[in-house]
Write a protein that binds this DNA or RNA. Structure first.
Length: 655
RNA sequence: GCUGCCGUAGCUCAGUGGUAGAGCACUCCCUUGGUAAGGGAGAGGUCGACAGUUCAAUCCUGUCCGGCAGCACCA
């Protein structure tokens, strides 16, 4: 007998091996009908599974949040059946659930096109309408391999071989079609419902290995209800509207062109935001960090010493004299990182333990030859500015320095409106330098710091571990922030490095006069300023807060009678420290309002005959209807105050 | 880098084996209008680059460059 506890607290005994479905039927036929799966002690399982041990049982219906994964997984199976029905000979591989949907990878000589998707969807609806039950069978390895080999499903044979010996080979059938699958599934294909959509097609490597076959992947998504699907599609549209590449063009912030793949042409407005960002960071560093600047171009030998030439040569730009007849054939590399330069600065002159921690910061422009397929607007470029810093400290100072950096990073994000941040510790990768003892020590300290970060935030900051994701020279923290529409971006990073100081022979003189290697901590807050600005554009959807806005206000006239007053007002606003432009064009005010609204100018200062006579201004805010009429001086004082950056305001309030 | 798709005016996009079109933007003229498009005229293109097929290529084929989506990569 097995003892089961129900969600209402009731406890009943059943015969060993009874299925969830039988239990549900015994309670009520309607429960059995609407139940798609069960959970035993929170573990989701097939409803038809035989129950061998007691515990807490729950019946899941389609609306249960835990059923969403099942709906998507089942939908992937339906997709696979549909594809094989339409194009016999196509091999199936894997079809997992991912964030926001699922995909299925197929092997086929002809790749799918977008035009195939509606055809496949139609076939899927037929399969769903047939409502065949999902049934699970356990096969022997040999049988599974034989059946799949006979069917020509060679990828499946490989998958069977990859399943660990202690795991069963489970086959899920839906009518005549079946697939190797870990499960669980719902009771039948009909439970998938019709709130699904195939989204796109793409190539993907078999088992994620770029040396293996390229498969044809179909992405889709599914929800319990049509409203949920519609809401999701709407959210996709919203993300598209915020695309920084589109907004960058529309707002005249930057552009890219063919001659400079992956490098940004910053226009005046974009560069204004960029500089405002850097000015903010500089203020935040003041008093703690020393800002330095290391050369752009350094002899290859330096990069050999640092190890970059060995590890990342494929991704570096090389430079040499372009002259034909020069006898100087030295090879230089354009810096891909700032650290070797900072180490040279640290090494210049003897350093005492009294000078540590020494914190060198640089807004360093680095270049990396990124694979062409990786380039993506400002988010992934070949030339970018890191808000980089290297802290040289003693072993004992390491933990407190990490925490100090953590405070800086979190408070910076908060100033841009990012409150939800996750910190992850990335541990030793396979490809690495340094002894295991070094890694053990570094990881132990970082793990402790990670715990401190969580407790100091009162649990607000979530933490996690990324096993094997560390840099080749040391473990790191990654700071992941969540934007206004719920997307996650990894920006900041703190990396401990026991390797580089040693490679360069950097040392400080300790109390006892001995030479000691410093610990080096690499840290970045925005990461790449270019990318961070891209994130900000999407986060704010182009509606920057006043202090960051490239054009904070436009003075727009209603009639040319107000031109003189408008010029006077523009001059006064500039004196008040505002970034302001004037629009005296011979256009109607409707037209001007529309145009500046599209350009996302936060404040419109509208003046007509009346305002000129009364020395007032009609203020219209971006995205809002209606206006506020104020005396000129009061309006400018209000805006100047509103344009104070958050950190400056904080300092003023503290004073 | 790999797979697929794409490249026509500043932007968004039509279009055709006989060397091009719209809307917006731009310039000029009329209009001085009170909070998201007033009217008219004009100018603007080696149809991504280079080869090939053809009497003829922006269109068909190939190569390259660039972009988009995904994969792989990301010190």
């Amino acid at each position: 007998m097995v003892a089961l506890t129900f969600p209402d607290g009731a406890r009943r005994e059943y015969q060993d091996g009874i299925s969830g479905l039988d239990i549900a039927k015994g309670i009520s036929p309607s429960l059995a009908k609407r139940t798609v799966a069960m959970a035993i002690d929170g573990d989701v399982r097939d409803l038809s599974e035989e129950i061998r041990s007691g515990g807490k049982i729950e019946f899941l219906n389609r609306e249960d949040p835990r059923a969403l994964e099942l709906i998507r997984h089942d939908c992937a199976h339906v997709l696979a059946e549909a594809v094989q029905a339409l194009w016999p000979g196509t091999q199936v591989t894997i079809g997992p659930v991912i964030d926001n949907g699922f995909y299925y990878d197929f092997f086929r000589n002809e790749p799918f096109t977008l035009d195939d998707l509606p055809v496949i969807e139609k076939k899927m609806r037929e399969i769903i309408a047939r409502d065949k039950p999902f049934t699970c069978e356990v096969w022997s390895r040999d049988e599974a391999k034989r059946v799949f080999r006979d069917k020509g499903e060679l990828f499946k044979v490989e998958l069977v071989d990859a399943i660990p010996a202690d795991q069963q080979i489970k086959i899920y059938k839906q009518g005549d079609w079946f697939d190797l699958c870990r499960g669980p599934h719902m009771t039948s294909t009909g439970k998938v419902g019709n709130a699904f959509k195939l989204m796109k097609v793409a190539g993907a490597y078999w088992r994620g290995d770029s040396n293996r076959e390229m498969l044809s992947r179909i992405y889709g998504t599914a929800f319990a209800k049509q409203e949920d699907l519609d809401a999701y599609l709407k959210q996709m549209e919203e993300a598209e509207k915020r695309d920084h590449r589109k907004l960058g063009r529309e707002m005249d912030l930057f552009h890219f062109q063919e001659e400079g793949p992956g490098v940004v042409f910053w226009h005046a407005k974009g560069w204004t935001i960029f500089q405002e960002l850097i000015a903010y960071m500089r203020r935040r560093l003041k008093g703690t960090y020393q800002e330095v600047n290391a050369p752009q171009l350094l002899d290859k030998s330096l990069w050999e010493t640092s190890g970059h030439w060995g590890w990342f040569r494929e991704n570096m730009f090389m430079a040499r004299s372009a002259g034909e007849a020069t006898d100087d054939d030295r090879v230089f590399a354009i810096k891909p990182m700032n650290c070797p330069g900072h180490i040279q600065i640290f090494k210049h002159g003897l350093k005492s333990y009294r000078e540590l921690p020494m914190r060198l910061a640089e807004f360093g422009l680095v270049h990396r030859y990124e694979p062409s397929g990786a380039l993506h607007g400002l988010m992934r470029v070949r030339g970018f500015t890191q808000d980089d810093a290297h802290v040289f400290c003693t072993d004992e100072q390491m933990a407190s320095e990490c925490l100090r950096i953590n405070d800086l990073i979190l408070s910076t994000y908060a100033d841009f409106g990012f409150e939800e941040v996750v910190v992850k510790l990335s541990t030793r990768p396979d490809k690495r330098v340094g002894t295991d003892a070094m890694w053990d020590r570094a990881e132990a300290i970082m793990t402790k710091v990670l715990g401190d970060i969580s407790t100091r935030s009162g649990g607000r900051i979530k933490t996690g571990i990324n096993p094997g994701e560390g840099a080749f020279y040391g473990p790191k923290f990654e700071y992941i922030l969540r934007d206004a529409i719920g997307r996650d971006w990894q920006c900041g990073t703190t990396q401990v490095d026991f390797n580089l100081p040693e490679r360069f022979g950097a040392f400080y003189i300790d109390h006892d006069g001995s030479k000691q290697p410093p610990v080096m901590i690499h840290r970045a807050i925005c990461g790449s300023m270019e990318r961070f600005l891209g994130v900000l554009i999407e986060h704010f959807a182009g509606h920057f807060p006043l202090w960051l806005s490239p054009v904070q206000a436009v003075v727009a006239t209603i009639t040319s009678d107000a031109d003189e007053y408008a010029k006077e007002m523009t001059a006064a606003a500039l004196r008040a420290g505002l970034r302001v432009e004037s629009d005296l064009r011979n256009e109607k005010i409707n037209y001007k309002v529309r145009e500046h609204s599209h350009a996302k100018v936060p404040v419109l200062l509208v003046v007509g005959r009346k305002e000129a006579a009364e020395r007032t201004v009609s203020i219209r805010r971006l995205g809002k209807e209606g206006q506020q009429v104020m005396p000129l001086e009061a309006a400018l004082a209000m805006l100047a105050d509103e344009a104070v950056p958050p950190d400056v305001r904080r300092l003023r309030q503290a004073a």
